[in-house]
Computed example of a mutant assay.
Amino acid sequence: MDSPYRRELEVALRVIEQAARLSQAVLPDTDKGAVEKEDNLGPVTIGDFAIQALLTCSLHAAFPDDLFVGEEDASALRSDPVLCDRVWTTLQRTVDTSPPSPGDCVVVLPSSPEDMCDAIDRCQNAPGIGRVWVFDPIDGTKTFLRREMYAINVALLVDGQQTVSVVACPLLSPEEAAENKDAVITNDSVDPTGRGSLLFAVKGHGAYVRPLFESKGRVGAAAEITPNIQNTKDTPRRLAPAVASQPLRPVTCYFLQESALDDVHRGVAERLGVAFPGSDLLGWVPRWASLAMGRANTTIWVYRRRDRHAKIWDHAGAMLLFAETGGIVTDVDGRPIDLLAGRNLKNNFGFVAAPTVEAHAAVLKAVRDVLREQGRLDLLGGN
């Protein structure tokens, strides 16, 4: 991939492979050290803490002047020495810091438990102008606890624009659909080959997918990322652009999130005449990955209240994968997503994503019409 962000992509690919290896080591554990967050927005596990520390240390070593934004903070680790030791031990026993070959990007571990906590807390920034890395160490922690679909999200924003995206989905098959082209992804879908998917994109250069693991449970060496190399089964495959004639196929999260208006989501599907719920996934990053891979091609999200907003780490970068296949993403008001708004995307309300400009206009109209029909004028703003 001939891009000025080639090194950023190479470093991110290398470290996310090790993060995926770590997550797979933790996945079988019955006790993943889960604790509830202080904001009551779900659990956090030793996998979340360890991966955020790994991502931060490695990318900070490569790009020391960049800022970092991540979902987790280390307060639970600082107050619980036993939990802190479990996270530290997990990093030491699962991460391979030796480069696969001379000259490859280096993975960096924290130097001590205190350094590990400091690295996690280095991600408490708000996004702003300049270069900012955004991490979701495990998106779909609730499903991760059940050994179901989850993802690791790494994004580089430059002046608030999605520039580099790297997403690991260790349980998602890299094939579009080997036998059934209408196959949908659900939370309990697990790649039968154990290889998982690694998706990546650089703005203006397309989106790609390749297997994450060489074989079950083993992380592959960093792959060549030039798009015109010989096509082998492990060669990155450029994700195909959307075709206007394709029927709409939704991905959503049905009756799993208290923040959602499920009746509106169902009403929009009925108005558009599409199957519902279609692909049903808890995590937003796997949803964006499924859209980019063509396993679905549209999604909407309407919160119960106008003062409820998305978190930047659930969307930044992962949305770029879909955009690089031609997908259109706005909020329910038809506005572009403002990634400079803060850790909470307070300048936007919900999401509407569709494969083409024409399809997006139709879906957006359906969303707003259903809100009017269901008497939710309080949720209509903008257009």
Rank of each mutant, 00 (worst) to 15 (best):
M1T: 11
S3T: 15
S3C: 07
Y5R: 07
R6A: 14
R7Q: 08
L9K: 00
V15H: 01
Q18T: 01
L27I: 10
L27E: 06
D31Y: 02
D31R: 04
K32W: 01
V35Q: 12
D39H: 14
P43W: 01
A50E: 03
I51R: 07
Q52G: 00
A53Y: 05
L54Q: 08
L54P: 03
L54I: 06
F63K: 02
E72F: 07
A74E: 05
L77F: 07
R86N: 04
V87T: 12
V87I: 09
T89Y: 07
T89L: 11
L91P: 00
T94E: 05
V95H: 01
D96K: 10
T97I: 13
P100N: 08
D104G: 04
D104N: 11
V108C: 07
L109H: 04
N125E: 13
P127T: 03
R131N: 13
R131C: 04
I138W: 00
I138P: 00
I138M: 02
K142T: 15
T143A: 03
F144E: 00
R146A: 01
V154N: 02
A155M: 06
S165G: 02
V166D: 05
V167G: 02
E175R: 12
E176S: 12
E176R: 15
E176Q: 15
D182N: 13
A183F: 08
A183T: 06
D188S: 15
V190G: 01
D191G: 05
P192I: 02
R195V: 09
L199S: 13
G206L: 10
V209Y: 07
A221K: 13
I225T: 14
T235F: 03
R237D: 09
A240L: 14
V243Q: 14
Q246P: 06
L248D: 14
R249H: 07
R249G: 01
R249P: 01
F255M: 10
Q257Y: 08
L272E: 08
L272Q: 09
L272W: 06
F276Q: 06
G278S: 08
S279A: 11
D280A: 05
D280I: 02
L281G: 04
L281V: 15
L281N: 05
A292T: 14
R305F: 11
W313D: 13
A316E: 13
G317L: 02
M319G: 12
F322A: 14
D331M: 07
G334E: 05
D338M: 08
D338C: 08
L339P: 05
R343C: 09
K346P: 13
P355F: 00
P355E: 04
T356A: 12
A359C: 03
A359T: 01
K365T: 09
R372K: 13
E373P: 00
G375P: 04
G375E: 09
G375W: 07
L379E: 03
G382R: 15
N383I: 15
